[in-house]
Design a protein around this nucleic acid. Structure first.
Lengths: 227, 227
DNA sequence: TTTGCAAAAAATATCTACATTTTTATATAA
DNA sequence: TTATATAAAAATGTAGATATTTTTTGCAAA
């Protein structure tokens, strides 16, 4: 079952990556001729890729005026993070109610794997390894909720948060204190999950998800992306 | 500020309506030549419209094999309605916490408007009027949550539920008993909202949103759409 | 000179028509 | 029947035509 892929698909993936990684800046004009050169593709498939990203709110479209990278702002930062924290807290609560033994095991396993990110030479490698394992950890928790659609909504929010989250990530991973804080939060989170105290899980997850906001806000100010 | 619109936009809107209204059935092949004829449009813009609907999960795409209307199933019915009920309950809880006087007023106003859907001749008109006012009522409640992103997630789920909801709608609006039940549920809901009992609001909204499931399940069976 | 406006030119977005590639259906032979 | 070859249908992609927006230029008035 090798999933084939057409040009629109690959342009979609590349452009999405280029936007979340910052290769294209917020509010940048996405010039069709430039995109065609960059991704070696015709206008047709390119517009398909853009249309999908418009649906995901990473790109905006104005008829007859083409496409732009969606803007960033502290306002949107708060909106996205609040919605995401609320959703994640609710999903965690459900996971605690529904999760079985194998769920507990997968949470503990992914937490352990995350705690072992240290003996890496390259700083950038460290960043991406911690990021992927951190995501895997929170993903393991959420997976217990038992709802595909809620998991899809969660992915939607994660995609929209990604550009903001990247700012936070560098700050956190390269700061031993911040990293230690996270370790503690995760430890406390696991204890609470295992205790099955749903109410406490909800507030703890909510707060854990809201913590990055002030940090990101500062970085947005510094970089003049505050909008 | 007259929002201009291109062919892809209008094809997107028309096709979306045609899918949710049942003009195209679940799992139908969406033949490009047919779509081009129907919407009087070339392949380019048509594919843009389809790409957006793929992102919204109303259409599925298989590379080199074109597009299909997303299937329906009792499994998906449960998944969508559970996620939607959970989300709506959470949003209602937030609305109760944050909503001000004008929010209360708009909820009561839209409930009143809904209760006055009666003196209409045409049955189909009655259906669409009750539907839009019912939506407006629940929208008024949710609007109090104060989060654009949560409202967007809510719209996402509403769109995905729409085909299932249409089945329930006919059943409910054309049954005096079912309609009376809804009236009571709404009355009780408003009382609880005004009492600001957040916990009760949450469970009440959740149950209200889950009620249609068995009815829709039956209709899916009858129509052989159970998948 | 500088500013404002209008017309022309350039750049860009959008759409269609057609060419190419891939899948699906049909026919034929083992 | 089953497998293989052939034909038809369909999806995908590109190039170029058309329409719209933006920029530049030219000119007149302050």
């Amino acid at each position: 079952m090798n999933e084939k892929t057409n040009l629109a698909d690959s342009a979609y993936l590349q452009l999405k990556r280029d936007i979340t990684s910052g290769a294209f800046k917020p509010d940048d004009k996405l010039l069709m001729s430039h995109l065609r050169d960059r991704y070696e593709i015709g206008t047709g498939p390119m517009r398909e890729a853009l249309s999908r990203l418009v649906a995901e709110h990473l790109v905006t479209a104005a008829s007859q005026r083409g496409f732009r990278v969606a803007a960033m702002s502290t306002e949107e930062l708060h909106d996205i993070y609040f919605a995401r924290a609320s959703l994640e807290a609710m999903i965690a609560e459900l996971a605690v109610q529904k999760g079985d033994d194998s769920w507990e095991a997968s949470v503990i396993a992914s937490a352990h794997t995350l705690s072992r990110v240290e003996e890496v030479e390259n700083a950038e490698q460290m960043l991406s390894l911690w990021d992927s394992r951190h995501k895997a950890f929170h993903n393991a928790i959420a997976s217990g909720c038992g709802s595909n659609k809620l998991m899809e909504l969660r992915t939607t929010m994660l995609d929209q948060a990604e550009r903001y989250r990247q700012l936070w990530l560098r700050h956190t991973v390269f700061s031993p204190e911040a990293l230690a804080d996270k370790r503690n939060e995760h430890k406390m989170l696991i204890e609470t999950l295992l205790s099955r105290d749903t109410k406490k899980v909800r507030t703890l997850v909510f707060e854990h998800m809201m913590n990055p906001i002030p940090i990101i806000e500062d970085i947005l100010q510094e970089q003049g992306l505050a909008g």
